[in-house]
Design a protein around this nucleic acid. Structure first.
Length: 870
RNA sequence: GGGCGCUUAGCUCAGUUGGUUCAGAGCACUUGGUUUACACCCAAGGGGUCGGGGGUUCGAAUCCCUCAGCGCCCACCA
């Protein structure tokens, strides 16, 4: 036999991927079919494939492949994201290793290095997606820094500025002293840490009294511009209006009152440092306090800190305590648990810092996006994220869109004088000159006089346009692609970027196109290890994605990921799941091997068992197709897979094939054979979205000349489900199970039977043969001939046993028990009807009904219930 | 502090409107089985007071209250 005993994924994967790709089956162009569109959540251009990507993209590929089979014009747009901070950090580090400091090179030089880096490492992740089997339209691959993509971003910035939605503000932002850039709130991670809180004494001016405060950050006393107490705090009322003296620098600051101060906390006195705390800034603004910024961009202190000038903030924290101690200003320290904000990317402790930033007003433009989700115009799966979204959108803050980096879209703001107020916003420098001349009245201005804003835009400011800009919907609003593919259908992403990305895409969809960007969002869970920890580089608990594919095969890894990934729940990943996928691959492979091994005979004598089995499997398949469809509608992809898994393994292999399988060495009739191939074909088709490689490989082995490849075949349509056929089979299979159980318990083994048959005991020999046959499902046609009605079938076969085979009274009861099935149903009705309370409360009419037809309870009781309520 | 969610078999999870089909699935486990597609397999089986307590109801895994534990998001007290 030419077919290998085990399935070897490695041998066929690249062959089929190449075949699909070269024949353009992944590609899509507008036509008269209905589109089904997904845009990929663009991974970081220099990223490498991790488990999260694998899960996410497997699901997208399943959706796309299924849509393709169902006759949609399926289009999956791939691409990558320039990821300002992450990429810039990597480039800076690389340059550092080469002995180059970013400070010593020009912006253009740096950008060149960054492009080199991107070209060298970029797109690797897309190649890895191909290994997974992802059927993206690679001709449409986009990168957020592509020319047209950049033009879209700039155009949108100008547009929003002209609408008055973008402004420059002097605001408290999260400052990353290591990357020397701003971070959005979402990019800051708060970690609980045990630190210390210090009590420090300030002298009161012209008095012998002192006032003390509690602080975790003693080094910021140089930036203090007031001390605040609660106006209702009797302890300190006498100090109101007096001045306190900051130790070391001996600067006088006012003592003020503000409701914000919690008298219960610390000493009840708050040192106000408007430059380094958001809340202090609010108090400062209210009381018109001076703002003293004591930090440099790199986290060292500046000249306001006197002799600490140039020293790092954490070093100063230690040193200043010693000095305060010597001055007698230090009171005590306590252990204190607090949350410290750190940069998601650099892990550096962030610093609240006042600086010039560009902001986008969100309140107004987010309204339609909020409504769309509430009204289910954009549906979230699972639904619970709707609430999270609502909560965030209702309390939305302005979006800080500027970043102090070089790698990204440079903000199209052009200054024409040294005064920061003198600027224009324009798509390019030519237009900027014209605008600047007009605005300033100075018509001698030329390009050289303009200086472009050095900041770049937040990366998400380009990706929020992704579903629009990949179809060039900003630059060419009426182009064919955009009109055809937008809005897209499904978005598959992680809940961690619900606010970063998903919410903002919906906002931009309505703002620029007045239409939702997608109709459904499927949130995958996070991939964790089997003990529930997040997968991370530090823990080293993340398996090498490519190695998994290498070891188990792409299909098996896809199955493994999905088997335990219900929507929205985190997935506890374990390699054994891939092994399960691999076992399944092998099972399918061997069913193919079996079918291929048969000797086909062109005969008319198809046996009854085969006819019955075919009739049954047809109904079974149809009922499962309906089930699978339902699972897909609810985005229960794992359940859909499990349904198929059981259909193939249990129904097709364990029951159907075992019944139609001819005895060893015997041929199979052609009718049954063809039907069996047809069933296999249908199974392969519904399997294809989940396991594209093996399904295509097997199909290629059974298809006829001229048949289309599986990837573009038609999803099977379900026929009528004949319940009586299913029920009959159910009864028979239960009967067989009971017989097997009986045999098992009696220890009637295969070997034993051989021995028995050598004896000349007629009775025992027959017992052997019947039990053997039933257990192997080969007696099914005999049973079917006895009676198709299940109830009498059991009785018949029982009698058959009793009268002809066993003849031993001791075993009769046991067998009777074993062969009983499903009596619980009738019993439960009985108990319900016997329930006195129930009967007393039940309207008479129902009692009559019940008498008429006792076995049909559910509907009756249901009616009863409704009537009772009335 | 505000919001959302979870707790069902050893593990990971299903369980629509309360009612036969509801106490389930997969994996794991136990027992038996290898010349006849597959040991990456076949067959059979054992596992649960549905987190605790209370309530509504003729009837609760399902609805209500409460307690305990866990998780996520947002805002944060120096």
């Amino acid at each position: 036999m030419g077919i290998a005993k085990s399935f070897d994924a490695k041998k066929i994967e690249s062959k089929w991927y190449q075949f699909w790709n070269e024949n353009k089956y992944f590609n899509s162009k507008p036509n008269d079919k209905l589109p089904y569109t997904i845009v990929i959540p663009p991974p970081n251009v220099t990223g490498i494939l991790h488990m999260g990507h694998m899960l996410n993209n497997t699901i997208q590929d399943i959706l796309i492949r299924k849509a393709r089979l169902q006759g949609f014009n399926a289009c999956w747009v791939p691409g990558t994201d320039h990821a300002s901070i992450a990429t810039e950090a990597k480039v800076v580090e690389k340059l550092k290793n080469d002995g180059i400091d970013k400070k010593d090179i020009t912006r253009d030089e740096f950008i060149n290095y960054a492009w080199d880096w991107t070209e060298k490492h970029g797109g690797l992740i897309l190649e890895q997606l191909k290994k997974l089997g992802c059927s993206c339209d690679w001709d449409r691959t986009k990168f957020t820094l592509d020319k047209e993509m950049t033009e879209s971003v700039i155009k949108v910035f100008v547009n929003l500025y002209e609408k008055g939605l973008i402004y420059r503000g002097h605001r408290m932002v999260n400052w990353d002293p290591q990357a020397k850039t701003t971070l959005s709130n979402e990019e800051v991670i708060y970690e609980e840490e045990q630190t210390k809180i210090f009590y420090i004494k300030y002298k009161i001016s012209n008095s012998s009294k002192t006032i003390s405060v509690a602080t975790t950050r003693p080094e910021t006393i140089f930036g203090d511009t007031a001390i605040a107490v609660n106006p209702d705090d009797d302890r300190y009322l006498n100090l109101k209006g007096k001045k306190a003296i900051i130790p070391i620098i001996n600067k006088e600051i006012p003592i003020i009152t503000d409701q914000y101060v919690d008298p219960e906390f610390g000493t009840g006195c708050l040192k106000v440092t408007p430059a380094h705390s958001e809340n202090d800034k609010i108090i400062g603004d209210k009381h018109k306090l001076e703002i003293v910024d004591i930090l440099n961009d790199d986290g060292t202190l500046n000249e306001f800190a006197l002799h600490y000038n140039g020293k790092d903030r954490f070093l100063v924290r230690i040193e200043i305590l010693e000095e305060l101690r010597q001055l007698g200003s230090f009171i005590k320290e306590e252990i204190y648990l607090t949350k410290i904000g750190k940069s998601e990317r650099t892990k550096c402790v962030i610093e609240p810092k006042l600086s010039d930033q560009w902001f986008l007003k969100m309140e107004k433009i987010s309204k339609p996006a909020l409504k769309a989700v509430i009204d289910d115009k954009v549906k979230f799966f699972p639904k619970k994220f709707k609430n999270t979204y609502k909560n965030w959108m209702e309390n939305i803050r302005d979006w800080n869109i500027s970043r102090q980096l070089w790698w990204g879209h440079q903000i199209p703001v052009y200054y024409y004088s040294s005064d920061k107020k003198d600027f224009v916003v324009a798509e390019n420098i030519e237009k900027a000159v014209i605008k600047a001349r007009k605005k300033s009245g100075d018509y001698k201005l030329d390009q050289k006089d303009l200086i472009q804003e050095s900041d770049v835009l937040d990366t998400w400011f380009s990706s929020w346009l992704w579903p629009i800009s990949v179809f060039d919907g900003i630059n060419n609003p009426d182009n064919e692609d955009f009109n055809y593919y937008y809005p897209t259908n499904d978005l598959v992403t992680g809940p961690d970027i619900l606010f970063f990305w998903v919410a903002r895409m919906i906002v931009s969809g309505y703002e620029f196109k007045n239409k939702e960007p997608f109709t459904s969002v499927y949130f995958t869970g996070l991939v964790r290890d089997k003990t529930g920890r997040k997968m991370s580089k530090q823990l080293g608990n993340s398996p090498d994605a490519l190695k998994l594919i290498e070891d188990f095969g792409a299909d098996s890894v896809r199955v493994g990921l999905l088997l335990s990934a219900p929507a929205g729940n985190d997935l506890l990943f374990d390699e054994s799941l891939c092994q399960q996928g691999k076992n399944f691959s092998n099972k399918i492979w061997n069913s193919y091997r079996l079918v291929k091994s048969w000797d086909v005979k062109d005969s008319k004598d198809q046996n009854l068992a085969s006819i019955a089995a075919i009739e049954w499997f047809e109904s079974k398949l149809s009922s499962k197709l309906i089930e699978i469809d339902d699972h897909f509608k609810k985005y229960r992809i794992s359940d859909a897979l499990m349904t198929i898994y059981k259909l193939v393994w249990e129904d097709y292999c364990s029951w159907y094939l075992e019944i139609v399988k001819p005895s060893f060495g015997k041929p199979i009739d052609i009718k049954t054979f063809n039907q069996t191939l047809l069933f296999l074909e249908k199974c392969l088709t519904i399997l294809h979205p989940f396991m594209p490689f093996i399904s295509e490989e097997i199909w290629s082995g059974i298809k006829k000349e001229g048949d289309k490849p599986l990837i573009i075949k038609n999803w099977p349509k379900h026929n009528k489900v004949d319940d009586s056929v299913l029920n009959n089979f159910d009864h028979i299979s239960k009967l067989i199970t009971n017989i097997r159980k009986y045999r098992n318990e009696k220890g009637i083994s295969y070997k034993e039977k051989i021995e028995l048959s050598s004896e000349k005991n007629q009775l025992k020999s027959e017992l052997k043969s019947v039990v053997f046959k039933l257990a192997n499902s080969e007696l099914i046609d005999d049973i079917l001939q006895i009676n198709k009605n299940a109830e009498s079938l059991i009785i018949d076969s029982k009698e058959y046993f009793i009268n002809n085979l066993l003849g031993q009274k001791n075993d009769l009861k046991k067998i009777e028990e074993d062969l009983k099935y499903n009596k619980g149903f009738l019993k439960s009705i009985q108990s319900k009807l016997n329930n006195k309370k129930f009967m007393d409360n039940a309207p008479k009419i129902v009692v009559e009904n019940e008498k008429k037809k006792e076995e049909d309870t559910r509907a009756k009781i249901k009616i009863l219930e409704i009537k009772l309520k009335k």
